[in-house]
Simulated scan of single mutants.
Amino acid sequence: MDYFIITSILVFISAFFGYINIRYIKLPNTIGLTVITIFFTLGIFALSYFDDTLLNAERYIITQIDFRSVLLNIMLSFLLFAGALHTDLQKLKELKWPILFFATFGVLVSTLLIGTAVYFLLQGIGLEVLFINCLLFGALISPTDPIAVLGILKKADVPKKLEIKIVGESLFNDGVGVVIFLTIFGLANGTGGDFSFTNVLTLFVHEVG
């Protein structure tokens, strides 16, 4: 199964879920799609107890995708372009310092807080997981999606300055998130020696640029 067929299937499912949300649920599109996807996934797992055909089909599709290449080299570029297309560049320049602060220090703090919370939560339910692996999860989900953010802010009718700060941060935090993720990933795999300050700085400039 090639990427064209997989993409067609995913686009069809996304459009179908979007129609259900607009027609019946009427939540902001990004939130509605997320909620429907969660319930759809839980439904497939429940159905698999009786017939696992659909679950096996999904597993097969997933195994055909090189997520590192698809997400970092293809999807991320389109997401960032679509978000930047609707951003006022002049306003972005005026608010560059708070945006830079949020996109760097904010992602670091978010990674630490989420990683710590997940660590204690898993410990509380009896799952022994290394703290650095929880930090890796925190780095994975800390960067926000510019399209999701922009869609919600447009509907919420927030002040323009606040919108530019949040959207600007969501545009630039992906590069920072990649650097943090790869750094923690290297440490978690015992290759932390390869991640000197110079290497991290070079990776940061390359990814953010």
Rank of each mutant, 00 (worst) to 15 (best):
V176L: 07
V208C: 02
N56D: 14
I74F: 10
L79Y: 07
N199V: 14
D174C: 01
G168K: 09
Y19W: 04
A46Q: 05
W97G: 12
A139L: 06
G124I: 06
I9W: 05
G43R: 08
D52L: 05
Q90A: 15
V109F: 11
L42G: 14
M1C: 10
I61C: 09
T63H: 02
L203C: 01
I13F: 08
D145F: 00
I65V: 13
Y60I: 15
I13C: 08
K161C: 06
I152F: 07
G177S: 03
S14D: 02
I6G: 06
P143K: 03
F12P: 11
Y119S: 02
N189I: 09
N173G: 13
L122F: 14
G192C: 04
C134G: 12
I152P: 09
L140E: 00
L76E: 00
F39P: 00
V107S: 13
T7M: 09
I125F: 13
M75Q: 12
N189M: 01
Q64M: 12
G151F: 01
K161E: 15
Y3F: 10
Y49K: 15
I99H: 04
V129K: 12
L135F: 06
K155D: 10
L55F: 01
V200L: 11
V158F: 00
L79F: 09
P98L: 05
R68L: 11
L130V: 14
A15D: 07
K165E: 10
F101Q: 00
S170I: 00
L27H: 02
S69H: 13
F12W: 14
M1E: 01
N189R: 01
T87I: 02
I6T: 07
E169F: 03
S142M: 12
V176D: 00
L112F: 13
F105P: 04
F67E: 08
F81K: 06
L85Q: 11
Y60A: 13
L162P: 01
L55N: 07
F16P: 03
V35M: 02
D174Q: 05
K161L: 11
G177V: 03
E169V: 08
D194K: 08
F45K: 06
F81N: 02
G192S: 10
L27Q: 04
A103Y: 09
L140A: 14
K161H: 15
K160V: 11
E207Y: 12
T37N: 10
I125Y: 10
L85R: 15
L10A: 02
L136F: 00
L153V: 00
L42H: 04
L55G: 12
I166A: 06
G124P: 15
H206W: 06
I22V: 15
L27P: 07
D52M: 08
F101P: 01
F105I: 08
N29L: 15
V129F: 11
L54H: 06
K26H: 07
M1V: 09
E94W: 10
D88E: 04
F50T: 14
T7Q: 02
L79I: 05
D157R: 04
A139M: 01
K93S: 06
D2M: 05
Y24L: 10
T104Q: 04
